[in-house]
Design a protein around this nucleic acid. Structure first.
Lengths: 239, 239
DNA sequence: CGCTAGGTTGAGCTTTCTCAAAGCGAGTGG
DNA sequence: CCACTCGCTTTGAGAAAGCTCAACCTAGCG
């Protein structure tokens, strides 16, 4: 699978601890919980493109991304694939399968070079009992995933392709009115799969958003008026 | 909103306790946790059609359905509605919004007459700290919701209307091969909204499934060969 | 300077939606 | 007891959205 490098107890874990402490999704962990995770887990480095988890397999580890972006990929029996979600660093990805000890609902692929912490399922479950901070962080992450997934269901059922693209852009825009400019850091094919459309449709949606005051230049997006785009989008922005 | 009836401490809570103890999603709660919930919460009865929660409002209570079926309904600004999910009794619905103290992502409507337990958010959060069994049940419910939502995203992105209908039927069928017969307990309009299509499209999908060996007679569904239908459906069945 | 990979554009087709009309079944009043 | 009505479902025809396939464009790179 990839380079594996367990912590031999005496090695320097400080840089990785700092990654956890600085991560918005993990910073509620306390020292005891972090100690526990490093004690029970091992660090792995994966190059972009690596498949960390295969849909349908039984969970053996809980993975926490310390650095890099994960793509959750689902396939049908016939082979077609789609991206269920992109997850930033600090994610305990496919957590639900681990907690329920049920086969992974999706595969996890490294969308960038990654550094991850892998904790055996039993050790993780034990950690939930022993470390309150870990349980709370886990609870929060899962609540966030439910929101994310529920929001996506709403998008797929209530918005057309261009509106979903508008939503995608707005979710990456910190301003809530006036003009704005931002960078999309995925390639078109990836964005298209995440939004549930073909790259061709994404292209046409990009063209369509000109009428809503959005101009694309490579990966740079310029929005004339965020409030207007929100109106166009039609759904409140979640994530 | 509806008939409200708090527990005055001495009243008979036994029937409601039994509902909890017999419910597959709640039976891991222990007596202390159940005591706590009844002490802090109040019982409400709602007739079919009542709106228990309105999308966009701030969570004040965590609701647990003791009896009856909930429809999670989402709307766009322009008014169109869809059903995000149908939840059986024993559900802590819209849990994620409560845990994160963020506006509800969807409305909750009583799809049947309902009996629910409403616990103020602060009391519930406190309960998570005090009662380990409650925290575990909560964790499990949320993990289940993530799976459900992730599965639905897969369905919407990878399956066409007829395949989604096949999925819906298979999810309600306990057998995994041979012939089977089952009842759908929702009306067509509701099933259509849940599956992300119009009632007309659902009608046509019902007709289309004849070729896959599925016959509808009112709410009764007869499947010639479950394995064959699974193949037609193209995705593993989750829920 | 030509290749290659990613992105866009165009044409035709498939799926699903929309709108209108017809079918059907359960409950009601004559 | 029967015709009627109301609500839900199905069917049909046309329109719209999105997909497929093919051609073309463009930028980075050997």
């Amino acid at each position: 699978m990839a380079t594996t490098k367990p912590y031999p107890g005496t090695s320097n874990t400080q840089p990785d601890r700092d990654l956890i402490r600085n991560n918005p999704y993990l910073k509620t962990l306390d020292n005891e919980a972090i100690d526990y995770l490093f004690q029970m887990g091992e660090i792995r480095n994966h190059p972009k493109g690596d498949v960390l988890i295969v849909q349908g397999e039984d969970p053996k580890y809980l993975f926490i991304s310390l650095k890099g972006k994960i793509a959750l990929v689902a396939r049908r029996a016939s082979g077609e694939r789609t991206i269920v979600e992109m997850l930033p660093s600090g994610s305990m990805f496919l957590l639900s399968s681990v907690l329920l000890r049920l086969p992974y609902v999706a595969s996890a692929e490294a969308s960038t070079d990654m550094r991850i912490l892998a904790i055996p399922v039993d050790a993780f479950m034990k950690g939930l009992e022993l470390h309150h901070a870990l349980a709370l962080t886990t609870l929060n992450q899962m609540a966030g995933y439910v929101r994310l997934m529920a929001s996506q269901v709403k998008q797929l059922k209530l918005q057309n392709a261009s509106e979903r693209l508008a939503h995608h852009i707005l979710a990456r825009c910190r301003k809530d009115h006036g003009a704005a400019i931002l960078e999309l850091d995925d390639e078109r094919r990836v964005i298209a799969q995440r939004l549930g459309m073909t790259p061709e449709s994404l292209s046409r949606s990009i063209a369509a958003l000109k009428d809503a005051g959005v101009v694309f230049d490579q990966r740079t997006v310029r929005i004339d008026d965020v409030a207007r785009l929100r109106e166009y989008c039609g759904l409140e922005i979640i994530d």
